[in-house]
Design a protein around this nucleic acid. Structure first.
Lengths: 342, 342
DNA sequence: AGTCGGGTCCAAAGCGCTTTGGGCCCGATT
DNA sequence: AATCGGGCCCAAAGCGCTTTGGACCCGACT
């Protein structure tokens, strides 16, 4: 059942039916109601492609899942982020167009997405250091917002990012305030831009107290539980083991905990652990009243909401770049405490 | 730059240009090359909406993320599944249209998706027990494949599912063979259809040896680490604690391990744990050579691949329902062993 | 010499919608 | 009585593509 049929069955023109359905004022209330009723009855739904072609709006936004051949891991953040974004987008009638891209031909896909008229805007995820995708998106000219930032790229573009540097600075301060002097950093993959910022925050905090970092206590890798476990184990076996660990994710922290407890030590008493908690729904940090880890916290789902919001604004208003920096909160839990007496 | 312009700039008709670009034989090789070159040069990309409107194919498939108001948790499976599906889909030139749906108005959205002509087919995720979405999809008449099954719904529809029942039967057998008699089941939410099957497999295995299950040793909840930890703790404190745990996911198993180790017990020696491993990329079960858990394993990413494959077949051939049951493999790791002597 | 047919290319008709530019009717204003 | 101006509705022109149904040219076959 298309518009033509519907119009015919009502003895009206397509124009009138279209206007009735879309709330234009040039149609009487009685007619409008009659049209609505018929549409309901016949189960009429406008064809989105035709509508999109006519209006120029796709009513959908693009989201690219980059997939490097090397890094086979799917970003665990992804599900929650997308859920957040989808929530606000679906409220506004937008859909999400997802493409998976092998890193090599990302350029093509982004270009394709836009020119194909499929999307009105894009959300870009997980920027790498020196990511050229931003230049690409700018060249393409479609509204876009980046979840995260790219350090070396200082052009004006819209982004939304958690203040990784500050969060890790603060977490480090927390440990330093407790008296820790040997603090380990279990960072994420250094190809990810945020890992740099986190390291910088960590180093800044140390530098502010005229302390250097021990390179042996800084590692980076994909953020799995096993990575957390293995590196913690290794470091605890050092002649001068760290007294505290700063873990880049809850999962890594859980690995650290396992390594700690395997040695008969207790987290928060013998060794402190502070993690960054993305607020993933399937991996909660205990409960708000009883957290497991001392953690910097920033909900990635909220980030999804806000990214979507930002993008919609960009699409609607053609305004300048919108940049949002979110501050993580610090929740002190039982996993951190003063270092044990020597 | 649209087809008309491109054709004009070449002094050709739209027809010819379109055919040249789409590989039709009615155009000479020299012309085709000339057209290709011009298209490249001007950066021409056909508008997907127009093309879709003309061909009737959307070249995209729909994926609905159901979101119940009650269950705020995002399916952790989702990211890997979608990555798998996206891989095969993108190879074939399909995109994924994601909509988030609040459970209440799922009907509407599914209907909208199709009638709006946005998608050529649908993948349905995470079916609940007695899910009416299947009837809905059938009524709609668009090709679809379900990842999972719905027990009570015996109509013919295409699905792809891991053999949950058999996997858990086998896992239970493994524990029984080792000599365990008190086995706990840490199941997923019972609203999910697969949780039923898993429980059935578990009970079948017990029944096959003329054993009953102790209801006190069977729980279900959203599969988090904390759930695993808390329930394991609780059960270990029972007057007659279980000697083995069957956990519905790796995360739950990790929680169980933590509870076990917190009591100074060792997994595999004092208490056995078998988990189901979905092969999530960010949550590997150790390494293939050195697994952490004894686990039934079935890659959810592969399931994504296969679902996509199935759907594309369905779209292309209009064949009857395609049903695929995947068998999980059982990897014996260090987390299971004979029960300790009494 | 006439016809056939393959190779190239084109004009135009859709696909289903929105939107522009009127048209018609009728009560209200000069 | 003539004009005006809402209110309501319509025909038709796009949006950018594919595809049908020829048209034209030429070498090859009767």
């Amino acid at each position: 059942m298309n518009l033509k049929d519907l119009a015919a069955s009502l003895g009206l023109s397509q124009t009138t039916v279209s206007r009735a359905l879309n709330g234009y004022p040039e149609v009487s209330e009685t007619t409008r109601e009659r049209v609505r009723e018929a549409a309901r009855q016949y189960g009429y739904r406008p064809d989105s492609r035709a509508r999109s072609l006519a209006t120029g709006k796709a009513m959908s936004i693009g989201l690219v899942l980059p997939m490097s051949a090397t890094q086979e891991i799917v970003n665990p953040i992804f599900a929650d982020f997308i859920a957040g974004a989808a929530e606000t987008l679906s409220e506004r009638g937008y859909d999400i167009m997802l493409s998976l891209v092998h890193e090599a031909d990302q350029g093509d896909v982004y270009r394709a997405m836009l020119s194909k008229g499929r999307v009105d805007g894009l959300i870009m995820q997980a920027p790498l250091t020196g990511d050229e995708r931003i230049a690409l998106l700018q060249e393409i000219g479609l509204p876009f917002v980046v979840h995260g930032r790219v350090s070396d790229h200082d052009d004006a573009y819209s982004w939304l990012d958690m203040d990784n540097r500050h969060a890790f600075h603060r977490a480090t301060d927390h440990l330093l305030d407790l008296g820790h002097r040997r603090i380990a950093l279990l960072n994420g993959l250094e190809t990810m831009d945020f890992a740099h910022r986190r390291r910088d925050g960590f180093l800044d905090a140390l530098a502010a107290r005229r302390m250097g970092a021990d390179p042996a206590l800084m590692t980076c890798a994909a953020m799995t539980e096993f990575y957390g476990h293995d590196e913690t184990s290794r470091m605890l076996d050092l002649p001068e083991p760290p007294t505290a660990f700063l873990a880049s994710s809850l999962l890594v922290g859980m690995g650290a905990r396992r390594a700690i407890e395997a040695r008969g030590l207790r987290m928060g008493r013998d060794v402190s652990v502070v993690v960054h908690d993305d607020g993933l729904s399937y991996l909660p940090n205990g409960t708000p009243e009883a957290p497991i880890f001392t953690a910097t916290h920033s909900s990635v789902r909220d980030a999804g909401h806000l990214c979507a919001e930002t993008l919609l604004t960009l699409i609607a208003e053609e305004s300048g770049p919108i940049q949002t920096k979110l501050q993580a909160s610090l929740t002190v839990g039982p996993s951190s405490g003063p270092p044990p007496p020597h």
